[in-house]
């Protein structure tokens, strides 16, 4: 396989803590292609979130190279990373991370503002995204007026609305009950069908089962990479 959508080569992330070096990521090589559905599994503290942060350009690797969609991002400045995050990445977090004082619609619109989309167009785009996640009619609700599952759908709509290259989900169902989890997973299946690329960190086996590829991390290293 040649250059993929995502390519990490020998990427590491070290933390210095009181004279001790914590190797959160330690020489990771990874290639992910367009429209892949990848699960990242591993014990707590193994480095899954650290890898997601680097993939999402929220964090910079201590060493190694990261090429995203043909661009070398490991050496970019903060402002360029902001722009990459805006254009290429959609984040879905365990704790939803919605803007608490903004309505569902305003939350979905937010990344489009940073992109400089026009007022009418971005509203239309946000409405469409909310409809795709089945929240039509809830656009005026504040996050605290929505259920956990609905909040995560808003977050998914917000991640989708910019039509990102990859969607990164760090334990997206960790705070949801099993039936809501199933709904969200169905939504992910849908996204894959529509050509999106999803990387999802999970502790749950049924989620890993659904993915076509499962990467296992232990102590900052990839110890297995299985494609079904």
């Amino acid at each position: 396989m040649s250059e993929g959508l995502i390519s990490l080569s020998n990427v590491s992330r070290f933390y210095e803590m009181g004279g001790e070096t914590i190797k959160a990521l330690d020489g990771v090589d990874l290639t992910i292609n367009k429209n892949e559905y990848v699960a990242v599994i591993g014990a707590s503290g193994s480095g899954k979130s650290t890898m997601m942060n680097i993939l999402g350009c929220l964090d910079k690797p201590t060493g190694g190279d990261y090429v995203l969609n043909g661009t070398a991002v490991s050496s970019m400045a903060d402002n360029q990373l902001s722009s990459i995050r805006n254009k290429e990445i959609g984040f879905i977090f365990q704790s939803f991370n919605l803007l608490g004082r903004a309505t569902a619609l305003a939350n979905v619109i937010q990344p489009l503002i940073y992109r400089g989309e026009g007022r009418r167009k971005r509203k239309q785009m946000a409405m469409d995204a909310l409809e795709r996640v089945g929240l039509k009619g809830r656009e005026g609700h504040l996050p605290n007026q929505l259920s956990g599952g609905q909040r995560q759908r808003v977050a998914i709509a917000r991640a989708l609305v910019t039509n990102p290259t990859i969607i990164l989900a760090d334990e997206p169902t960790g705070n949801l009950d099993s039936s809501t989890t199933v709904e969200i997973l169905a939504l992910f299946d849908d996204l894959i069908k529509n050509g999106h690329t999803i990387i999802v960190v999970t502790h749950e086996h049924d989620i890993a089962q659904r993915c076509k590829r499962a990467i296992t991390i232990s102590d900052g290293k990839i110890i297995s990479d299985k494609v079904k």
């Binding site: 991370n97 990344p111 910019t162």
Partner: peptide
């Protein structure tokens, strides 16, 4: 959150 969404 805003930074994650692309705020500079």
């Amino acid at each position: 959150i805003c930074k994650a969404l692309g705020a500079t």
